[in-house]
């Protein structure tokens, strides 16, 4: 799929990236104004990764996500109002207010869940791949994680299980350069995190994570390989987190110049320039994508705000499936 030449695909990618951007900005704003509770991990600047990756997936495919997972949910097809309702602690939220930002899942769209534990989703993805294989299903499983996850034991164990059993899993590393404040060049001896694939006997590639086409192409090839029974792949998508890790971040570990240099490589601006330059979309069509994204996020906030607050009365009976214990 050529996202810059196919008008429908280009609009889809652009709408998704703008929706993620506007959703994250709205969350940042609501949070800053004290209208949202808890803590949030925003993915502004990283929109091309989930967008490019999920365009390579089909219905029935699974994803696992991370603490910085709003973009993954949106790209996999989650409903914005139910996401926003969750963040606003509403009964209509995906988790009925019990999970919040770090635990949004949408099992109906194959999203097995964000995860508050770094690399927590990696062995879970291997297991979902095992289930797909044992059930003779045609699906693939895509596991998103950050650079920090690649040094966790769970990552190594999960990738190894997928590798030895040729499971249909695509491991997508969003290398946004920092695990909270720990710089990738201090946390790894390898030049490219994709080099870790060699240790497990699987293909590993590094792509420009600010280019949805590059992400899409690498993921599409890996998904095809997975569906064909040829096992997992590792894709490192190099990108950058514009905002702090979370609300406590004072950006003491990086410079203003560094952040600005990455803002100049805004994945959305670059993609818009590419589709305009190729004549695939006109300015008016870009404008429509932006407007649709803005309106969808506004609607989501309105709908969520009107919903009832999450209720505590069923809490004790919500712990176990199949009724209280």
């Amino acid at each position: 799929m050529d996202l810059t030449k196919d008008a429908e695909a280009a609009q889809s990618a652009l709408r998704t990236m703008w929706t993620i951007r506007r959703f994250e900005e709205a969350v940042d704003d609501l949070f800053g104004r004290g209208l949202m509770h808890g803590t949030m991990h925003l993915s502004i600047g990283q929109e091309a990764v989930p967008t490019g990756a999920c365009l390579a997936l089909a219905d029935g495919d699974y994803i696992t996500s991370t603490h910085r997972g709003h973009g993954h949910c949106i790209a996999k097809g989650a409903k914005l109002d139910r996401m926003m309702a969750e963040l606003l602690a509403k009964e209509t939220g995906y988790c009925r207010g019990r999970g919040g930002s770090m635990h949004i899942a949408d099992v109906a769209t194959g999203n097995l869940g964000a995860n508050g534990i770094v690399a927590g989703g990696v062995p879970i993805a291997a297991g979902a791949g095992l289930a797909v294989r044992m059930r003779r299903q045609p699906h693939a499983v895509l596991s998103f994680f950050g650079d920090g996850a690649v040094n966790e034991g769970a990552w190594h164990e999960g990738v190894n299980l997928a590798a030895i059993w040729d499971l249909p899993v695509v491991f997508v590393c969003e290398n946004n350069h920092y695990g909270m404040s720990m710089a990738v060049n201090k946390a790894f001896r390898v030049e490219r995190l994709a080099e870790r694939a060699k240790a497990y006997g699987i293909p590993g590639v590094t792509v420009d994570g600010n280019d949805p086409q590059a992400v899409h192409d690498a993921v599409a090839e890996a998904v095809e390989r997975a569906r064909a029974g040829r096992g997992p792949s590792l894709i490192e998508a190099v990108t950058y987190r514009w905002k702090g890790h979370s609300k406590s971040d004072k950006n003491l570990y990086r410079s203003r110049e560094e952040i600005d240099s990455w803002r100049e490589r805004d994945p959305i601006t670059l993609f818009e320039a590419a589709v305009l330059g190729s004549g695939t979309l006109a300015e008016a069509e870009l404008e429509r994508c932006r407007d649709e994204a803005r309106d969808a996020v506004r609607d989501a906030i309105r709908t969520a705000n009107a919903a009832p607050d999450a209720a505590a009365d069923e809490l004790a009976s919500a712990v176990y499936a199949g009724g209280p214990s």
Binding site: I124, A128, M134, V141
Partner: peptide, 12 residues
């Protein structure tokens, strides 16, 4: 990895 894979398999 084993227990994580069990969680994933159960979810799927």
């Amino acid at each position: 990895g084993i227990v994580g894979a069990a969680v994933g398999a159960a979810l799927a």
